[in-house]
Design a protein around this nucleic acid. Structure first.
Length: 464
DNA sequence: TGAAATGTTGGGGCG
DNA sequence: ACGCCCCAACATTTC
């Protein structure tokens, strides 16, 4: 009986899984070893955080349960995949290892090394699509390079065939008792969770997709920017860990509906930044735009600490940063606002914000996170121009008009009337006394004056 | 997926 | 009736 390994990584699902389907070909006679490798270099990385590990543990448990119902189980091993994957192949006599292609710098290097080790031992290695809608490299300009601008990328993206969604396999038979470790838990991985993180795993992800389609997708284009409403999909972590396939999401959309179309466009952004990181892996470390590589960004500072902890004195910024710590997720509009504030108002290195996000977000994704930060900093592909600077007061008034978002996450401002909720420093003394907010005592004074900061930022970038 | 500064227009108040 | 001013509303330019 031929044996193959399905090496799970960021594709922790059973449905619409091209690599799994390929490993199970041609059908009944094939046994598959479903393997997950707990890689200490990823788990222990400074940019890894408890929220993502919590989601990962949920997802592995759910995957194991799904496999169990299909006659198999998930084999968990700890160690460097370069050693572990070939070792499991040797133990099980596997003829081939299948996985879903990865495109981050670390993942690309790791996969090349694993492939070399396997092939050196006479084991086939096969990478399959499934992490993105369009594989990196499948969307190109007429001359054949990758796109640097989103709109033409999206136009060309539409021409790439997606294929149809495939069902989960009925059975995934494991060949024989393959030794594995217990499923990891946050505790076993050495982290403790402070945030209230969503439940991870394929069933939870699929339930969230259904809820989004039922409740929010139709009005997505109108409500996705409202900070306090459930207008977004909340599928970011599910997509990051592959608990739902992007294709299975995309195929459920009715692109004639403006809401669905708007959401589809966000999935294309995800593909865009995947392409960018695959083509220019250096963006993970340095600015995409070479002309902006030597800006004198500020490093660690008391201002950075205030930003991280949500006490900048700007209500919408503080609400967003506290939302991040509270539920390990932040509204996308809020991400843009706080990123603009860190880069433009505080002139702080975008890499510090990027790292903070990766550590605290349940959906922290190397490609999308980096793309978003370089966009905000104005250093990336298709980035916003340096003079585009968000005003935290007017953005707050625009996207949190009744202050519900601020009041949810900055409870000390709960009693501030709508009129001042986004600029409480203007509270008249008598009103301030009424609602129990004395600036500098109950809520911080703004750490910078936005109008001044804006002028500084313009000068900062103009010099470059 | 900006915001502020500057320019233009047109209605209304008023002498 | 007319000219003048003010200014809100909108458009354009600039960063």
């Amino acid at each position: 009986m031929p044996t193959r390994i399905l090496w799970f990584r960021r594709d922790l699902r059973l449905h619409d899984h091209p690599a799994l389907a390929a490993a199970l070909e041609p059908g009944d006679g094939t046994a598959v070893v479903p393997l997950f490798v707990v890689d200490p270099r990823l788990v222990g990385a400074p940019r890894m955080g408890a929220p993502r590990l919590s989601y990962l543990c949920d997802a592995l448990a759910a995957l194991d349960e799904g496999l169990h119902r299909r006659g198999g189980r998930l084999i968990v091993r700890s160690g460097d995949p370069r050693d572990v994957v070939p070792a499991v192949a040797a133990e099980t006599g596997a003829a081939a290892v299948h996985w879903s292609g990865e495109f981050t710098p670390y993942g690309t290097d790791r996969d090349a090394a694993v492939r070399a080790a396997l092939e050196g031992a006479g084991v086939e290695a096969h990478a399959h699509p499934g992490v993105l809608l369009a594989e990196p490299g499948s969307v190109r300009t007429a001359p054949g390079d990758f796109f640097r601008v989103f709109s033409p990328f999206q136009r060309a993206w539409r021409e790439v065939p997606l294929g149809e969604v495939t069902p989960a396999p009925g059975r995934v038979p494991v060949p024989h008792a393959t030794p594995g470790e217990p499923l990891p838990t946050p505790a076993s991985l050495g982290v403790s969770l402070d945030a209230d993180v969503i439940e991870g795993g394929e069933p939870a992800a699929r339930a969230r997709l259904e809820e989004f389609l039922r409740l929010s997708a139709d009005a997505y284009h109108e409500r996705r920017n409202l900070l306090s409403s459930d207008g977004t999909s909340r599928l970011s972590a599910d997509l990051h860990y592959g608990c739902v396939s992007p294709r299975a999401v995309y195929r459920r959309l009715d692109l004639r509906q403006p809401g669905h179309k708007g959401f589809a466009s966000e999935l294309v952004w995800r593909d865009f930044y995947g392409h960018v990181l695959a083509r220019w892996p250096e963006v993970a470390i340095t600015e995409f735009n070479p002309a902006l590589r030597d800006l004198p960004w500020r490093g660690a500072s008391a201002d950075l600490d205030a930003w991280c902890e949500g006490r900048t004195g700007y209500p919408v910024i503080d609400a967003a940063m506290r939302q991040l710590l509270g539920i390990a997720w932040m509204h996308n509009r809020a991400r843009m606002l706080v990123a603009s504030f860190l880069c433009k108002d505080l002139l702080t290195d975008w890499r510090l914000g990027e790292a903070h996000f990766l550590r605290h977000l349940v959906d922290g994704d190397a490609a999308s996170n980096n793309g978003g930060w370089q966009w905000a900093a104005g250093t990336g592909t298709d980035a916003q121009p340096y003079f585009r600077i968000f005003n935290p007061v007017s953005q707050g008034e625009q996207f949190d008009p009744d202050g519900a978002y601020v009041r949810r996450w900055v409870p000390e401002l709960r009693r501030v009337p709508d009129r001042w909720i986004h600029h409480p420093w203007d509270l008249p003394d008598d009103v301030a006394a009424d609602c129990g907010v004395r600036i500098g005592r109950d809520y911080p004074a703004p750490i910078v004056d936005h109008a001044q900061a804006r002028i500084h930022a313009l000068a900062f970038f103009k010099r470059a």
